[in-house]
Design a protein around this nucleic acid. Sequence first.
RNA 1: GCGCCCGUAGCUCAGCCGGAUAGAGCGCCGGACUUCGAAUCCGUAGGCCGCAGGUUCGAAUCCUGCCGGGCGCGCCA
Length: 554
Amino acid sequence: MVKQRVKEMLLAAARAAWEAGELASCNFPEANIEEPRAGAHGDLATNFAMAGASAQKMPPRQIAQAIVGHLADPEGLIEKTEIAGPGFINFFIRPSAWLPVLSEIHEKEGSFGSADLGQGCRVQVEFVSANPTGPLHIGHGRGAVVGDTIASLLSFCGYRVDREYYINDAGNQIHTLGKSVFLRCREIDGRSIEFPEEAYQGEYIYEIAKSAISQKGQQLLDTDEEEAVKICAGLAADEILASIKNDLENLGVLFDNWYSEQQLYDTGRVNRTLAFLEKQGLVYENDGAKWFAASKLGDEKDRVVVRKNGQTTYFASDIAYHLEKYERGYEQIIDVWGADHHGYVPRLSAALKALGKREEQFRVILTQLVNLLRKGRPVSMSTRAGRFVTLRDVTEEVGRDAARFIFLTRHHESPLDFDLEVAKARTNDNPVYYVQYVHARIASIWKKGAEEKGINTSSPGNLSLLCEAEEIGLLKQLARYPETVAVAAELMEPHRIAYYLMDLAALFHAYYNKHKVLTDDPELTKPRLYMVLAIQKVIGNGLNLLGVSAPEIM
RNA sequence: GCGCCCGUAGCUCAGCCGGAUAGAGCGCCGGACUUCGAAUCCGUAGGCCGCAGGUUCGAAUCCUGCCGGGCGCGCCA
């Protein structure tokens, strides 16, 4: 592409200048080519001369002069160059030099923009992993969409990615869940109960209790309490998990694997992992509990792995779980957590370090909280009373596309205001429809062009007729897509794709309002249709990465 | 108290692995449908980039300290 070619030309020119004795050193800096904000500074610019000043022991402008003097441009991409400011080299690109991006898009279709960054590296993205003790809320939705989209991005960029959900089906909370259900069963049966504060208060507990009674019958209430609670816990977790799965499917989130915490105990992995750490001298006893020496590996303090009462902690099984991920062959693991768990990061990192994993093999993405609003006002959520708007409610009200897109319109570490009314609005307030509208509009143009003008893609026509300023702007934006994807994948920042699409959509809508695609002149109409169809493909490609549909009609 | 995140236009936010004159949407005001989909577009106004230092040829961007907001700091998960 143009940017890459200019970069190559720049480096070649620097080398040529050095060979000609005009530069003192061949120790060149990284060639950083960017697009200046101001159009007066050209289409592309580089700080190459400034960055190399110290190595060359020459003033930047003089270096720039030497490089420009040796610039070879066989394809004639560059119209002119300028040396500006403290030593920028500004490149003015011949407008038609941007045209080849169109044929590239038409050839590559859905794979346009992908790059083999991962080279087959196996990555696991673990996300949501909410305890199966209640319905998902909107915060889980954000984590789900961010995790899912990061996985898509990585997969698009050459990583072999699996999506995994970790089920916390062992430990206290499940026991509490079972007890909550059991107590409700008794209540339904007409017995008087004391419902403890720490039990799950929600309405859904009654539903599960009813279903437990109908499945297990009256005898459930007469069995030994411990046994009954266990049965209730199992039933409840299964039922809740099924509904979580369903909610996630409605959001377009599908997992490759659902991994049970209990399984780690059943296979003895937790004990084995602890024994290993103990052998390394990183687990010691104090106050009747066993501690992992996390403070030796970057955490603030040591952490308990086995409680005084002999039970292991959640942390213990989590270490075992993460170790097992690597044993399954993942070279890199990514966890998506709510930001309220950020304090947990150092201790898990410490544990993985103790297990011999490199820092870059483990990455935690934290998603900030979501404020649910309606018409600008907070929607009251009372978890205690068990009254809250669930993720399912939100998805049903605003639809999958809007929900997903809105979750991706913020950096994941920024808090997000999610306004239900805005999410439903079919206006510029709501960027989903703005972007999708481009896709639908182009479908409509295309249909009309084929029907009335009999024009199809196989005839791009004379592309040099694409010379309006808005057309060049669109070509440049299309050319930015691969880099946008690569950066989004590298930084694991899917919101960059959303912003890219909004920018592309804005350029298209402006163009559409100013120029006709279907003109009376077939020779002009052909290249315009060809370009517009390329735009549609890139919009579809990007929306697909985000898990949002690209409708032909809306 | 310690740690993490956030602080950019009236509001909601991009930009932050250093670049030149800081952007978008909404809102306000004023315009554009007998012509490819008005779920659209065009125009005006709006800024000590929280504050103060530091590094640099150059800082919204990096470093330090403060201020304000959120979240964490369990032998819970």
